[in-house]
Structure formats: C-alpha cells, structure tokens
Design a protein around this nucleic acid. Sequence first.
DNA 1: TATGAATGAGTTTTCATTCAT
DNA 2: AATGAATGAAAACTCATTCAT
Lengths: 204, 204, 204, 204
Amino acid sequence: MARITKAPDERRNELMDVAEQLFVEKGYDHTSPSDIIRRANVAQGTFYYYFGSKDEIIKAIIDRYIKKYEQYVEQVAEDESIDTPRKLELILEALIDFPMLRKKFGKLAYDQPNISNHRGYGERMGTKVIPIIKHIVLQGVEDGLFKTEYPDEASEMLVMLIKHVRDELKQTGNGDAGLRKVEAARAIMENLLCAPRGTFRSQP
Amino acid sequence: MARITKAPDERRNELMDVAEQLFVEKGYDHTSPSDIIRRANVAQGTFYYYFGSKDEIIKAIIDRYIKKYEQYVEQVAEDESIDTPRKLELILEALIDFPMLRKKFGKLAYDQPNISNHRGYGERMGTKVIPIIKHIVLQGVEDGLFKTEYPDEASEMLVMLIKHVRDELKQTGNGDAGLRKVEAARAIMENLLCAPRGTFRSQP
Amino acid sequence: MARITKAPDERRNELMDVAEQLFVEKGYDHTSPSDIIRRANVAQGTFYYYFGSKDEIIKAIIDRYIKKYEQYVEQVAEDESIDTPRKLELILEALIDFPMLRKKFGKLAYDQPNISNHRGYGERMGTKVIPIIKHIVLQGVEDGLFKTEYPDEASEMLVMLIKHVRDELKQTGNGDAGLRKVEAARAIMENLLCAPRGTFRSQP
Amino acid sequence: MARITKAPDERRNELMDVAEQLFVEKGYDHTSPSDIIRRANVAQGTFYYYFGSKDEIIKAIIDRYIKKYEQYVEQVAEDESIDTPRKLELILEALIDFPMLRKKFGKLAYDQPNISNHRGYGERMGTKVIPIIKHIVLQGVEDGLFKTEYPDEASEMLVMLIKHVRDELKQTGNGDAGLRKVEAARAIMENLLCAPRGTFRSQP
DNA sequence: TATGAATGAGTTTTCATTCAT
DNA sequence: AATGAATGAAAACTCATTCAT
C-alpha cells in the first residue's frame, strides 16, 4: 500500500477515533486491533507503533474523553453566573452528548456491550465527577433549594438516572416518548433532591 | 476418563450451574466453552450435545433465572396478606439475592463484565418484571401511599436503584457502610415515590 | 483437510519428533509452531491441544531425551560385567548418538543454534549425568586406574570433550579425519585421568 | 528529538558497543534493532544508515573483537621475553576478559543465549586463533615442556577448557569455589599437555 | 548524516465448533 | 448419552526493514 505519513498526533487521534467508534458499535471485546487497522487504513505495525496493546488504546480514549468532561464540569461548577439547578442540569446533560457514549439507535442497549463498564471508565467517573456533582448538590442544600440526608448516594443516583435516560433516548429517539422520558427524569430529580416542582425546567 | 452417565436433566442443569458461575466470575466473553467443560468434568462433545452453542447456554441460564424470579414476583404480587410497600421491598430485595448476579467482593463493579447486560437479560427484565413493579407502584398510588406522575420511569428507577445498591454492597460488604447504603436507598425510594418517611423500614 | 485421528500418544510423539528435527535443523528460535504444524500435517489447534506453548514442547522433548539417557547411564553404571574405563566410554559415546543432537553435516556447528544450550537441557545434564560420570571416575580412582585431584572438573571436561568430538564428527564425517579425532579424544581422556596409555581402546 | 550529529566512526562504534552489550545480555536472537536504537538514543533510520541489517552489525562486532584479540595473540606469541607456558596462559586468559563474552553472574550459562556460537565467531576462532595456540603448544613440545601426539585437538581442548572456566566463574564468582575451578583448570592443562606439575602457576 | 513514521509478513496463541467412535 | 481428538479462522502482537523528509 502507498505510504501515507501524517503528523503523529493526527494519526494517533485518528486511530483513537476509529477505535472509539468501533468500540461503541461492537463493544470492546468484539473489536480486534485488526478491525481498527482495517478501518483506519493503516498497517498492522502502525497500530502497535502508537499503542502497545488493545488495552492501551482504550485507556487513551477514556482518558481523552474524561479529561474533556472534567474540564467542562469544572468550568461549569465554577461559573458564578449559573444557578445551582442549572449547573446540575448542564453537567448531567453533558454526560449524554459525548460521542464515546453514542450508540446506534434501534438496538437494545441492554444487549450491547457498553464501553462505560470498561477499563477504569467508571472508576474515574466515581472518583472525579461524582464529587463535583456532590459539591453542587450540597451547595443547593445550603441554599435551601435541595434537601437530602444522603448527598453521596443522591449524586450517584443522579448519574445513574442520566445514564439511564441516555440509553432510553437511544432507543426511543427524540420523539414524544423521548420527551416524556426527559420530563420523567426531571420529576425524579426533583423528588430525589426534595426540590420544589419546577426547579429543573430548562431545555434538555 | 471414565464415562459418567447421568440423567439428561441433571447433566443439563449441572452444565448450566457451572456456566452461570463462570459467567459471573469472569464474564460471558471471557468464559470459553472449554472453561465450562473443564470445571464440569465432562468431555468437549458433551457440552455440544446439550447446548448447540455458547450462546444457547446463556440464553437457557437467563431463561431459567427469570422464570424463577417471575414466579416469585407474581406470587408476592398476588399475596393479599402483604402490604404494598412491603411487596415492593420483597420484589426488589429478591433481585439482590439471585446467584446469577453474585460477584466477588473487592472488585469495582464498573470494571467487571456484567452478565445482566447480556443476551436478553435486560430485555426480559424490561418486558416482564418492570410491568409487575409498575403495577404495585400504581396500587400504592391508588391506596394514597405513593405519588408519581411517571410510574413507568419510577419503576425503572427503582430497579436501577436496587441494582446499584447490590453492586455497592458487593464492594462495601455488609458493615456500617453497607447499612448506610441501604438506608440511603430507602430514603431515595421514599423520595422517588413521594412516600411518607418510614414507609420502607423492614430488614433489608 | 481430512480429519485424521490418532492415538494421543502417537500424535504427541509425532509432534515431538517433528519439532525435534526442526529444532535441530534450524534451532529453537528459528522454528515456529507453524513450521512444526506444517510438517506434521495437523491443524494449528492440534499443536496447542497437545502442548500449551512452544516452550512446553521443547521441555517435553528434552525430558523424553534425558530420561532415555539417564536410564541407559544408570543401567551401564550398575552393570558389574563392564569394567570402569569401558563404562566411561559407553556413557560418553551414548552422548554422541542421540538423535536430538544430530545436525546436518556440512554446516559449521559454530554457526548453528544448538539445542543443547536450551531450556534446562544443560542443567539436567549437570545435575543428573555428571554425578554419575563422576561416580565412575572415582571408582576408577579407587581401582588405581585413574588419578585426579579434581574429579568434578575432570568429569565436566569429559562431557565437554565428548560434545566437542561429536560436533567435530558432524563436520568431518566418519572418514580418516574423524578417526583421528576419536583417537585424539582417547589420548586426551587418558591424559585427563592420568590413565595408562591404552586404557581406552574399544571401538567408538 | 534533537538531531545529534557525530563523527561517523564514533556513531558507528557507539552503535556497535550498545549492540554488543545487548547481544551479551539477551542474546542475538532476542535483541531487536529497536532495542539497540532505543539504548543508543538514535533514530530507526540511523541504525540502517550505518548497518544494512541486524546481521551486518553482529558481523562487524565480531570482526572488531577478533581483530583485537588476534593482534594481542600475535604480539604475545612473538614476544621472546615470555616463556612458553606463560604465553599460553596469557593468550587463554585474554579469552576470559573480553567484554563481548561477559555475562551476568547468577544465571546458568547453559540456558543463556551465547554469542560465541553465533555468526562466524567460532569459525574465526578456529581458523585464526587455534593455529596460533597450536604453534605455541608445538614450541612447548620442542622445548621438551609439553608432550602430545595431537596438538590440534589439545589446542582446541585448551580453548574449550578456558571457555568453560570462564562460564563457571560467572556463576561461582571469584570466591573459593572460583579459585578451585582455576586450580582444576591448571591441573587439567598440565595433564592435557603432559606438563610437569607446577608448569602453570601464575595469577589467573 | 539523521530522522522517525510506516510497513507487512510472520509469530504465538485462543477458542468455538465438529466429528468419528 | 458421552467422549475427546481434531479443526481452522481469527486474535493479539513482534520486528526487521523502508522511505519521504
């Protein structure tokens, strides 16, 4: 094959993009380095030139992803012009939109291998993101907006809730059923935090 | 090896038991038919005599499991001597104890392959179990015990909550931290269903 | 390919024979499992059905070989009808003839990878065979036939000498030059053990 | 990385030094050009600029080494101020000290890849060095110091003996056990050459 | 002279499945 | 009903070498 040389960073990201997409489509376990190589149109060795193993590339992808998310979360958390409920909404919504968590519609999420169960992804979510969410929740409690005896658990539940909604939306699409899910999620959030009705009401 | 003949049903169940345990220990993808065969002490061919493929055995396991659970759920749901909150508790608690969902303590659930994402397990939970839970929730609403505009979503959240608690308990063990988790779960359940404090108070 | 089933022992030995020959021809490092598989006319999986790895097969080969040799050595050592010098000769000569050490004539031994440097072969020679040789040497000393202050070292030298002769014979063939080598070896053995001229004189 | 330009000869020798060390540490087959490149801190292409292949570099190393040794050997051989036994000792001892034959202590030599079996090393030893040793041996015979009917073979044995001692010393270290080995070697040398006791007695 | 990204054939290994007995 | 030897395609990875800059 003709040799196509690229800037290392470009190649590296290209490989990560391709891998990410495949992991999402077929799951980590059912994606082989060869799959990635084929789709990226590079030689076997090129993959291993950039990543020492299959494990290494998924770790790199997760890192890249979480770094982006953390940045966003911190930025939102620190922004004084945003009120507490809206902060929560933004942070949780961002969880929905990241490409690495995209799945094709029309397939049941249950049966799909899910990258978010893999390789330290959850761990980093737990140690990095949840504390930030908890922090915002506590702020809301201080402000008298929320009420909860279990801020840790409530924060975890919020993340779970949002992941669940995300999965649901993949299946229902963004139609009426989708809207209803979002409404339900808001109601549940309010319940969870004993927040007054209408606390969460911005566009999703 | 000496040929050991058994009643077909016994052999079949034996294989399923072994497979179930392995799937739980290592995950479906990382368990090979040979692993099952080895631990069950049968020949390669015996496995394929009973199950046409690896896929077939996991489907059989899930079927067996869900059938049992459905039976239990229906029985509880119909039992008039149990009040509504207690019914919910029993049904959700049963979700915790089933062997197929057991995992070793000490490992982060996130990183572990989780059979409950596999092969129609979730689907059947969705189509079979959640409606029953919803039914009980609605009964509670009728009784004036619960309040929710989104019984479907609330039911799904209840299942998620309980799965989450189960995973947490695996990590924390049943000590103080575990107890706290259970308390938190109860508070969250009450919040979710707008039930009065103290509605859920039986032993976990 | 048509499926040819054989008795496991036969297959196992067949694979070992083929591997042995290839290791001798090309050296361990330059022989791939695929080489063995190809020549043995079996499927990839068959090789790994019998041997878990490339390493395992060479260990099995060495074991098989050394076991045979040890048996022979012990039998000779215990045979009271054979006198001491002749025992030494027999044991050392046996070292020459074993198939696993055969190499093609015409190629310089120096440049050939040599299995006898591999994977515990030498170690077992050292711990198993040399003590037996030393024992015979000491017997000779007792009988007043040999004289040496360093029976350990002398025994090691004897083995080295014989290996060297073996390698030489591979290059020279069994012609006049070969005969001369053998004569030289005898003289050196006599020197090494301070044995009277003519002590080693049987056909090689 | 910053481009570091050096005098071609310096670079070349640097690469050879690094490669030599690696070959000794891990063996030729288990050292990759990339290993050399990494340790030498040069680019992939630089290696191939100086050496067309992996094979070429080891040949260069052996050449360099043997040239040095040959020079030394010739110089000693011609030096009239040194007596014959001492000449032999010096030449054989030099064989021990060359860096290319250094190995780490503590590992069985048998199992270690041994560069001296590789790529023409032995051949050149045979055609170049052994004749010189033989020449000294014959001189000793003429002087009435040594006695042997097989000077070729005896010379070869001397080299083998010394290599063996070298390997042993690597394992035993230079303690008492090492000393004993050296003493044994001397006794064996005397035996081999039918030299009077005490012929070889200088520091090792 | 020197760089380092890229290549691709090859190696070692795994594993779901088949089939003759 | 049960056995277990055999299959072969594919997975994961290595590494000597090339080449555009």
